[in-house]
């Protein structure tokens, strides 16, 4: 009796929670097909009018490419740096290993706003301009702790034994890294890269502080938002969402294939 009540309550809670989680997304998507000027009920669509406007908006399409560029570039950098550091610290005891790990993980405890502002002050002082490069540098800083932690956790004693077996069978250092370590870590590398790319793609405050003319998509959307609510924003938001979902699906597929190959 009470067990059935518990099960019923569980499903009810799950339903309400999912509704709460999905409510804003549903509203966002639905009113991107609004006909009128206001993205609020009553719904008078469907219409592709605002979608057409978004596709024709150079600011949005430019921002999209800039975001992709910064996201992929900074994620690649963060993954490479994270891998090198994780490999070195997992495979050799360094005198200051504890301090190194603390330093590499430290940015995770500091707000993006503070990291962005510090970079802005430093770049100002050094006379370096704001640019996509500057944004990318900041995004590597915030993503490095994540890529490092993910990869470090995958370089345990079992993996060390696998590398030892390869050395034992005559492989050189370079071959072990290229033919054993990297392929073995492939799913983790992919996951680290993807997480870094997503966080960069979506990051606002550093991008806002470090950009002037070339801006990323979150900054474009932010500036559109300042001129008020509009179904065009809904369409732009839905577009971003759709691209993210496609990327998630793609990575899930890649990870699934990587795991299947490993199996």
């Amino acid at each position: 009796m009470s067990a059935r009540l518990g099960a019923w309550a569980s499903w009810a809670y799950l339903g309400v929670a999912l509704l709460f989680i999905f409510l804003p997304v549903l509203v966002l998507v639905q009113f991107s097909f609004q006909e009128g000027l206001a993205p609020v009920p009553p719904f008078d669509g469907p219409s592709l009018k605002w979608w057409a406007k978004v596709m024709a908006n150079r600011k949005i399409t430019d921002g999209l490419w800039n975001s992709l560029l910064v996201g992929l570039g900074s994620a690649a950098m963060a993954t490479i740096l994270g891998f090198l550091a994780a490999y070195a610290l997992a495979r050799r005891k360094h005198r200051l290993s504890g301090l190194y790990q603390f330093l590499l993980m430290a940015p995770i405890t500091v707000s993006y706003l503070i990291i962005g502002m510090g970079l802005q002050i430093t770049f100002n002082h050094l006379g370096l301009g704001k640019s996509l490069w500057a944004i990318g540098i900041g995004h590597v800083v915030i993503n490095l702790p994540l890529t490092f932690a993910i990869l470090y956790s995958q370089l345990g004693e079992h993996q060390a034994n696998i590398e030892r077996a390869a050395y034992d069978l005559g492989a050189s250092d370079a071959r072990v890294i290229l033919e054993i370590t990297v392929p073995m870590l492939w799913p983790a590398l992919l996951a680290a890269f993807f997480i870094a790319a997503t966080l960069s793609w979506d990051e606002f405050v550093i991008a806002f502080l470090m950009s002037r003319f070339d801006v990323t998509l979150p900054v474009v959307i932010w500036s559109m938002l300042r001129s008020g609510l509009s179904p065009e924003l809904n369409a732009a938001g839905t577009l971003v969402f759709a691209i993210s979902i496609l990327a998630v699906a793609l990575v899930e597929l890649l990870l699934w294939r990587a795991r299947r190959n490993a199996n």
């Binding site: 079992h158 034994n161 030892r164 077996a165 054993i180 490993a262």
Partner: peptide, 10 residues
């Protein structure tokens, strides 16, 4: 021959 076999998983 390692205790955990250390076969190359990929």
């Amino acid at each position: 021959v390692f205790q955990d076999y250390a076969l190359f998983p990929h």
